[in-house]
């Protein structure tokens, strides 16, 4: 491996995750204290609600379950590996993951198409929204690509990526686990940390409104606080 590639690996997988986490925590806390009422999803449902359903619902349900999958594998890698010990169970898990990933991708594409095609919604879309959509598209598309072209991720994530993630948690990064991963896998990882770093500057902060009532609350009228927009 060339020393430049080695340097990049160190930068992306041993330094950048910390930078991303520091930005995430500091800016999120600062934004919550300083501009509390900007903690909003800035829903545009009242501007357009037909296409909205086909984007919002699949994307959210898809991404929530896919993320739960990542977190469970991160917390319980040995249990995932023993689940996958039977090839039938492995296939079942991977098929579920693939279905959810495509469900998410369909939703995200619908969201982006709606943002582009609906003139009313386009007006209330900020540059940071566009950047976020691009990042999320790269993230979900690279995830589908990895699942399809480099199976079986549920197993090798638990075996080779989780130890690296825990080495980050323990503040002593060991990048040897992932230094030789294929490009798509590295892209998926680096882009994930870019999303984490960008998170507090975007509408994604609505995820942190605890206790997060979205799954069970009644429908409500959405008003925007804290930002002024002119059409």
């Amino acid at each position: 491996m060339s020393s430049f590639a080695h340097y990049l690996d160190q930068l992306f997988f041993a330094v950048f995750p910390f930078v991303a986490m520091v930005i995430f925590f500091l800016v999120t806390i600062q934004r919550y204290r300083g501009r509390t009422f900007t903690f909003s999803s800035l829903s545009s449902q009242f501007l357009e609600n037909e296409d909205h359903f086909w984007g919002m619902v699949p994307f959210h349900f898809g991404i929530i379950f896919v993320l739960i999958g990542h977190v469970v594998a991160f917390l319980l890698p040995a249990q995932i590996l023993s689940w996958n010990a039977s090839p039938i169970r492995l296939i079942l898990l991977e098929l579920t993951g693939m279905a959810l990933a495509l469900f998410t991708l369909v939703g995200l594409l619908a969201v982006i198409i709606r943002r582009v095609s609906s003139s009313k919604v386009r007006v209330v879309t900020s540059p940071s929204d566009w950047v976020l959509y691009l990042l999320l598209l790269v993230q979900v598309a690279s995830g589908v690509y990895v699942a399809l072209f480099h199976p079986w991720g549920s197993s090798w994530f638990a075996a080779a990526v989780v130890p690296w993630l825990w080495s980050l948690v323990k503040l002593s990064p060991n990048i040897s686990y992932i230094a030789a991963m294929p490009f798509a896998v590295k892209l998926h990882i680096v882009n994930a940390f870019i999303v984490i770093a960008f998170f507090p500057f975007t509408r994604l902060v609505h995820i942190l409104v605890l206790p997060n009532p979205y799954p069970w609350r009644k429908t409500q009228v959405v008003r925007w606080y804290g930002i002024r927009r002119t059409a």
């Binding site: 693939m98 279905a99 990933a101 369909v106």
Partner: peptide, 24 residues
């Protein structure tokens, strides 16, 4: 790559869309 994996995943995603459409 396994075409079967992709097609079955796609079928699952379509089923999911039909499911949410009927729920709501």
């Amino acid at each position: 790559p396994s075409l079967m994996l992709f097609l079955l995943g796609l079928a699952g995603a379509v089923l999911g869309l039909m499911l949410v459409d009927s729920i709501w």
